[in-house]
Write a protein that binds this DNA or RNA. Structure first.
Lengths: 236, 236
DNA sequence: CGAAGCCTTGATGCGCCTCAACGTACGTGG
DNA sequence: CCACGTACGTTGAGGCGCATCAAGGCTTCG
């Protein structure tokens, strides 16, 4: 079992900003902390939502399955974010799968706490609203991109987004901090792994990126930005 | 100028559910009601957000402009919905244009009221969160559709959505209640007006719809659902 | 009555999916 | 530790869906 949870874990995270210490302590008392191994599903689309979560460490892939059986990845969750807050959104089932992109640590609360939380802590409600609002804005931006841009731009955007969100500086450039396959990228951009593979190969020979098995390193991010903006095109 | 606003205008709308009458009255005192002619912009993308709005009557088109200059329509707003609540979402500029799809009546409040509103009326905060959450869910669904479905399915979906949202029963079938051009549909689905025109023509000769200038009538909605689900395909 | 906006329909081409085959790294168990 | 199976990646050939280009007809409104 785990040692006592300290409020330093969550005190400085956006969702809990401006909450007083006693409230935070009370909140942590009711939380369960849990380690999730890479590849494990935390919850599944359609499952009744009984708990909500906070990602303390790691990265989580959100996966939506369409009725036709295709899968799509609308976003990745980084540490410090709330997720699985179906209840807050007024639905009683999780709208997507949550899969650990690598080993993760999460906090888990029962949904029954939620009403109290928003009722007694207006700032928490406001913070959550802002979070959900940002996600909505992001999603709408993605929607517009998907509708108007060519595959090449969307893939460049996806890689850049991942690098911005999870990038680590190394000698060679910025490397994405968890395993990403060609398939993962294609699931984010509505294309196929083949097309992603071809693009990454082309960019590698051009010298903008280096990539290997489930690993992508940006060596010339600026160039990728140009491609993302449609101001430069990959040579066949 | 307008007569006094009565709380019956807003009492039964989702955002205000469970608010007490005195609060509603106070809220209305601070509202300005306004008529918007068809085609007029209520606000513009990027403009600083100083007010938020409630649509009392009509339909509003949300239009996003991409940096590259393409436009995209993520959704239509129906009467009874809040919109332009940028402040709630933690951003200080409107993220898209709002254009009256036909003559509309709206209520307008200054943004300065928002903090009080959520602080003093927890149910309002919860309701708003649920609204934004539903929009997020919708948007993500749309994203998945756009990523995985063929144009034909997306156009069918868009038409069905409009019909469900604004459809009026007539002798001929369900007619969409405001002027919709081919261009509008293509802006919702990330295609071109040409393709939409061809599809509607094909569906018309097949007998699923009737359509004319800025007017679409569903005569066999069930068939369209099949197309939307990819279980049936339009003949060339 | 003219102009502008909306719609239709054809011809053409290309971006990207699909299908196919093979190469390569990983990890697992004997 | 090696051998095998599995998952991931690459690259080619071919074709289709849909954008693009083009031209013309039909409303609606000033």
């Amino acid at each position: 079992m785990l040692q006592k949870l300290d409020i330093s874990l969550i005190r400085d995270l956006p969702p809990f900003r401006d909450m007083d210490e006693s409230a935070l302590r009370a909140l942590l008392m009711q939380a369960r902390s849990q380690r999730i191994a890479k590849g494990v599903h935390i919850f599944i689309q359609g499952q009744p939502a009984r708990e909500f979560f906070l990602l303390l460490d790691g990265h989580i892939r959100v996966v939506k399955l369409t009725p036709q059986g295709d899968q799509f990845v609308p976003r990745y969750i980084s540490s410090g974010e709330l997720f699985g807050i179906a209840m807050a959104l007024g639905v009683d089932a999780y709208p997507a799968d949550a899969v650990a992109a690598r080993d993760c640590v999460i906090l888990v609360w029962p949904n029954t706490l939620w009403p109290d939380l928003v009722a007694n802590h207006p700032t928490f409600a406001t913070n959550t609203l802002a979070t959900v609002g940002k996600r909505l804005a992001e999603t709408q931006l993605q929607l517009a991109e998907l509708a108007t841009e060519r595959v090449e731009q969307r893939v460049a955007n996806a890689v850049l987004k991942l690098a911005k969100q999870t990038g680590k500086k190394t000698a060679e450039g910025i490397v994405i901090d968890f395993p990403v396959s060609r398939q993962d990228i294609s699931d984010m951009t509505g294309t196929t792994l083949h097309t992603v593979s071809r693009l990454l190969s082309a960019w590698e020979t051009a010298g903008w990126v280096k990539s290997g098995r489930q690993k992508i390193t940006l060596t010339d991010g600026h160039r990728l930005v140009l491609i993302a903006h449609g101001k430069e095109r990959t040579q066949g």
